[in-house]
Amino acid sequence: MTYVFQFGIVFDRFHELLQGAWLTVQLSAISMALGLSLAIVCAFLRTTGPRPVRWIVAAYVEMMRNTPFLVQIYVIFFSLPAIGLRFEANQAAVVAMVVNLGAYATEIIRAGIQSVPIGQIEAGRALGLTRIQVYRKIVLFPAVKAVFPALASQFILLLLGSSVVSAISAKELTAIANTMQSTTFRAFEVYIVVTVMYLAIAVAFRGFFAAVYWLVFVRGRA
């Protein structure tokens, strides 16, 4: 093979990639926070809400889990403007990531809720706590603790999946890489570097989640 690798040109413009990586981290972090909040509410409604509400949440979860993320982005970015909901690229990306993560996380937290012994919930009700109080003060904490590893993997999948939002020209890491490869003609070098950057971000997030788990669930309430 005669191809000569030239990484120099990629590293000369490394700051552009760093900017893209920062936006990727921001988009992902915001979506994780909002998506988790959405899931905590949906999991509550899914388990204790009135029947029609439970049914609606279940339909939302199944719709999201059985269609591709990319198509969800297209629906939000290209289809919704027709009914007056217009987002710019970054907003559309966050909305798509939140509703997508929200659905998966709802199922995960629901599994966690089911692992909480029913006696604890009954005890809480017997003490006169409302359903919301029982959920907030008794169920939620051990439920999230039980499924924390699954939640963390889902967050990582979201982070990696965020590269797809480049398709609606949100200027995150993958989009920057696409621009760079089309101006430098060094596609392979650019994508190798960017792949390693994603790997690094994923490892950093995993470390962060491990730290959160330790701080909140191990040290916090020994």
């Binding site: 093979m1 191809y3 990582i156 990696l160 999946g161 965020s162 590269s163 797809v164 480049s166 993958t174 490869q181 596609a187 392979f188 994508y191 190798i192 960017v194 792949t195 994603y198 790997l199 994923a202 490892v203």
Partner: peptide, 19 residues
């Protein structure tokens, strides 16, 4: 640990380099 899209790009552009 890496995005599927990157894997696609690397295979698409990469294997071409190896002739």
């Amino acid at each position: 640990g890496t995005p599927l899209l990157m894997q696609l790009f690397l295979v698409y552009y990469g294997l071409g380099l190896f002739g």
